[in-house]
Every structure is written in C-alpha cells, then in structure tokens.
Design a protein around this nucleic acid. Sequence first.
DNA 1: GCCCATAGTGTCAAAAAGGATACCGTCATG
DNA 2: CATGACGGTATCCTTTTTGACACTATGGGC
Lengths: 116, 116
Amino acid sequence: MPRASQRKPGVQGCAVERTMSLIDGKWKIIVLYKLLGGTLRFNELRRLIPSVTQRMLTHQLRELEADGLIVRTVYAQVPPRVEYTLSARGRSLEPVLLAMKEWGDANLSSSEAYAA
Amino acid sequence: MPRASQRKPGVQGCAVERTMSLIDGKWKIIVLYKLLGGTLRFNELRRLIPSVTQRMLTHQLRELEADGLIVRTVYAQVPPRVEYTLSARGRSLEPVLLAMKEWGDANLSSSEAYAA
DNA sequence: GCCCATAGTGTCAAAAAGGATACCGTCATG
DNA sequence: CATGACGGTATCCTTTTTGACACTATGGGC
C-alpha cells in the first residue's frame, strides 16, 4: 500500500481510507501511542516496543516525521541524544489511539469474553 | 507483519499492538467502516471501494471473518448472493472507526487547516 | 587498549502484500 | 448462441515490508 509521503493528495477515497494511509504499518500506531505518554528517546522507544528492529523503528519515525505527526529533536551531544515528541497534529490522533487501546483491552485481553 | 489468524495469542505487546494486528492492511478498516452502514453484498463493497481488487477484497473479507469481526452469509441462489455483516465484535469497533473518520475529516480533507 | 552506549546507516535477502489477468458455474437476457 | 451478472479462484508478477547483520563516530569507564 502506498505510504503517505508518496500518495497523490486528494485522489484517495473516503476520510477513513486516507487516515489509514497515514498510519499504516502497525508500528506507527504503536509509536504514536507510546509517545502519548510524553517525549521519548530512540532507545527508549526500542525498549518499549521490543519486537521492532532498529531499522524499522528508524524508518517509521522518519515517515511519521515526514507526515508531520511527530517532531524529532537532535541534541548535538556525545553520546547522541535524539528526542521524539508528538506534534499537535500527532496529538490530535489521541482519540483514535485511545479508542484502539480500549477496544484491545475489552476484546483481546483475557478470554474473548466480549466476543460475538 | 503477522496476521491475526496466525498470531500466537498473548505473546504480543500492548493492547494497541494487538488491536493493530487484527485490522492491519488498510482495506480491513475501510471494509468495516462501510459495513457500519449495514449489510452489504460482495459487489456492493467493491463498488464502494473502487481501489480494491477483487482478489484483495476476497482475501480481506476472509480474514475479517476468521477473526470474528464480520459474518458471511451465503444464500444458495442463482445468481449467487453473499452478504457481509458486522458481528457484535465487529460492531464494537465502531468507536475506533468513527474516531478515524473524524480525524480524517478534520485533518486531511481541505487544506491541512488543522495541521501543526 | 577494549568494550559499552547512543542513534543511527547500509546492504542483503526473505516474506508478505498487493495488482493484473484469466477462468469457473449458473441462469437470464438478447 | 453469445453476453453479462454474481462471487468468487488460480496464477503470475511486482512492490513493499520486514528482518538479520554489519558498520559508523564519539566519548567514558575499566
């Protein structure tokens, strides 16, 4: 599926479709969700999401940055220090993120108690 | 990324992560969203989502069914008639779906007026 | 001098997703 | 008889995603 930074704007379908293009790949959602808790450094994110590889995390962060959902701040220090924060646009996704978390908690956690 | 029907349950990360595994691939979200409006037949879905190919739609519908989010009803008629409806579990995703739609409307529609 | 941490990049390769196209059976229509 | 609708399959191919692994620079600790 085409990523946001590659999409031709406005050619897509409905709002849901376009929203999905921005946040596809499960990592993005998870990264954004973790960042809801506040600014995080690169390796903090890695530790919070153990299943993501370094390369993937870098890649997803770049795309999120390109789509204006997060802000990347580099401190010219040694050792390097890079911080990631939600932009206002990214923070505006909070309802979506929280809706997902709540659904996951209700529907996936224990024993499918909620299932149809 | 591993699809829901293939995942080892419980080994995943947080609720958001597990929720994402269920609905990854942008088509699923869109299909579910369209089904919020009521039962639809296969070709009705195709027409509502012009950018999805027949093969992809079939595939996504099978996965959604396997994950218990939709119900597939076949009427033994000629011509064939197959209807797709949200299951209770699928309908419980409504808040997530609506949150996405609202975000898309607010953030993607006209001219990035909301952007950071 | 050697290893550690930080925050990456580069390369290779496998796996998955997605697209294009053709085909199926059945019945109705023309 | 040919065509079309319906709801798919089957096959092939390309693109995208993902993973594994090595490598970088710098400075601090031992």
